[in-house]
Amino acid sequence: MKNKWSNAEQSVFIGRLNSLVQKGYSLDEAIRFLSLQAAQKRRGDYHFCLMELKRGTPFHQVLQQLHFHRDAVTYLFFAEQHGDLAFSLNESSQLLSRKHEQFIKITRMMRYPILLIFIMMGVLYVVQHIIAPQFLSVYQSMNMKPSPLNTVLLASFQFLAAASFAFPVLFLLAGSFYFLSYRRKPPAQQMNMLMSIPLVKEWVKLFNSYYISLQLSNLLKAGLSYYECLVTFREQSLYPFFSEEANTMINRLKKGDRFEELFAQPHYDPQLAEIAAYGQRNGMLHREFYTYSQYTLQRLEEKLSSAAAFIQPAVFTSVGLIVLLVYLSMILPMYQMIDQI
Rank of each mutant, 00 (worst) to 15 (best):
Leu85Asn: 04
Gly44Phe: 05
Pro146Gly: 00
His47Pro: 00
His82Ala: 01
Ser92Met: 06
Gly283Met: 10
Ser11Ala: 15
Gln158Arg: 11
Met337Asn: 00
Gly320Gln: 12
Arg16Met: 08
Glu80Asp: 10
Leu172Cys: 08
Thr57Asn: 00
Lys221Val: 09
Gly279Leu: 00
Leu66Thr: 03
Ala132Met: 15
Ala39Trp: 05
Arg234Cys: 10
Thr57His: 00
Leu206Met: 06
His267Ala: 03
Gln271Ile: 04
Pro113Arg: 00
Ser225Glu: 11
Gln65Gly: 06
Val169Glu: 08
Val138Gly: 05
Gln40Asn: 08
Phe233Asn: 09
Leu172Trp: 15
Leu149Trp: 14
Ile275Asn: 00
Phe135Ile: 07
His286Phe: 14
Ala155Phe: 13
Asn247Glu: 15
Lys205Leu: 04
Gln128Asn: 08
Gln215Cys: 09
Phe33Tyr: 14
Leu321His: 04
Val73Ile: 13
Thr57Lys: 04
Arg299Asn: 05
Arg252Trp: 07
Glu101Thr: 10
Leu321Arg: 02
Leu220Ala: 04
Phe241His: 06
Tyr292Cys: 03
Tyr335Asn: 03
Ala38Tyr: 02
Gln37Thr: 05
Leu325Cys: 07
Gly256Phe: 06
Ala314Glu: 06
Tyr178Ala: 11
His100Met: 04
Ser92Tyr: 11
Leu324Lys: 01
Ile130Leu: 15
Ile131Ala: 12
Tyr75Cys: 02
Ile212Tyr: 10
Ser176Pro: 05
Ile197Met: 03
Pro146Thr: 08
Met51Gln: 15
Arg70Asp: 13
Arg43Ala: 05
Pro168Arg: 02
Ile131Pro: 13
Gly24Ala: 07
Ala277Met: 06
